[in-house]
């Protein structure tokens, strides 16, 4: 089965940028999109997902709350918080949850490094 990645971000531009990099560097990966936390949860429930790239600041459920729910329900999913909120507290929160932290703006280098890291 090919690998699947879930992108949850309320910004169309951010999703487009991530999709662009993933389709160029990991063309075999299936990309699933959601523009808010609830939709992201539904997509994870209804699809096989290996990895999730989750924005923090979204309308409704924020990225940390979504990550916590995903970890509980789908612990097999590898999660990276992708955020412009680069404050130390946010990094610490992600680290405490055992999820990755990718600082916006997204670049090919940052995303590829995160997706290939163990």
């Amino acid at each position: 089965m090919s690998k699947s990645i879930l992108i949850v971000d309320d910004s169309s531009l951010a999703r487009m940028m991530m999709k662009n990099i993933i389709s160029q560097s990991f063309s075999e990966w299936k990309i699933i999109e959601a523009n808010n936390g609830d939709e992201g949860m539904k997509q994870a429930d209804n699809n096989h997902v290996d990895m999730a790239l989750i924005d923090f600041n979204m309308p409704g459920m924020n990225g940390i709350d979504l990550s916590a729910q995903l970890l509980e329900k789908h612990p097999e999913i590898k999660i990276h918080l992708v955020t412009a909120n680069i404050q130390e507290k946010m990094r610490q929160r992600a680290e405490a949850m055992g999820i990755g932290f990718i600082m916006k703006p997204i670049s090919k280098d940052k995303l590829v490094l995160a997706m290939t890291a163990n």
Partner: peptide, 22 residues
């Protein structure tokens, strides 16, 4: 889409600003 892009750029700017204020 242009407004969405602009908001995302502002969002990144605000993230940097919040880090400095923090």
């Amino acid at each position: 889409l242009e407004q969405d892009a602009l908001k995302e750029f502002f969002n990144m700017g605000l993230g940097m600003a919040a880090d400095s204020l923090s």
